[in-house]
């Protein structure tokens, strides 16, 4: 059974500098050749101050920015080898560009246990991470549902 007393708990804040090379690398792996994600010159020619974050670039904020993310999950009792990614949702509040310095705070907003058809139990956790930039502007809300079998 998931320990419901953990709901509402926030992990310590983390900071992450959005890197041009990381946006480039992520989109190479995805196979997205849009020049805006690979060249500062192309981005500026199109009127952007620098390379913009692509829609799923925030995944790099979480994994590279919060090196202790897995540790925090273990600390609230999650068996990380048994995690399945159920849902991911982003709310984009302001554009994010290479060079921005973001601060993220992740909160466990929901957690419950559910019985599967075969009688085994699984936990369903909802985490929300709110990001602000170097000007103190809120730029992104990321909501994630993790299923732990």
């Amino acid at each position: 059974m998931f320990d419901q007393s953990k709901i509402g708990q926030s992990f310590p804040p983390f900071t992450y500098q959005v890197e041009r090379s990381k946006i480039h690398e992520l989109n190479l792996a995805i196979g997205d050749e849009n020049p805006l994600y690979h060249s500062k010159e192309a981005a500026q020619a199109a009127g952007y101050p620098d390379v913009p974050a692509s829609p799923t670039t925030p995944t790099t904020f979480q994994f590279w920015g919060n090196a202790d993310f897995v540790k925090h999950l273990v600390a609230i009792g999650v068996n990380v080898m048994r995690i399945i990614h159920g849902e991911e949702e982003y709310e984009y509040l302001a554009p994010i560009y290479a060079g921005d310095v973001l601060t993220g705070v992740t909160t466990l907003v929901d957690g419950k246990s559910r019985q599967s058809k075969d009688g085994s139990s699984m936990d369903i956790l909802t985490l929300e991470t709110r990001y602000t930039n170097q000007s103190g502007q809120e730029v992104l809300k990321a909501r994630q549902v993790l299923i732990v079998r």
């Binding site: 849009n34 829609p55 909501r143």
Partner: peptide, 24 residues
């Protein structure tokens, strides 16, 4: 989700998305 993000950013551009969520 990155593939779907490519579909959308090709369609609306890189800074036009306000919300994007998927269920796996």
């Amino acid at each position: 989700m990155g593939f779907l993000g490519q579909l959308l950013s090709d369609y609306v551009g890189p800074t036009a998305l306000r919300k994007f969520g998927v269920r796996f």
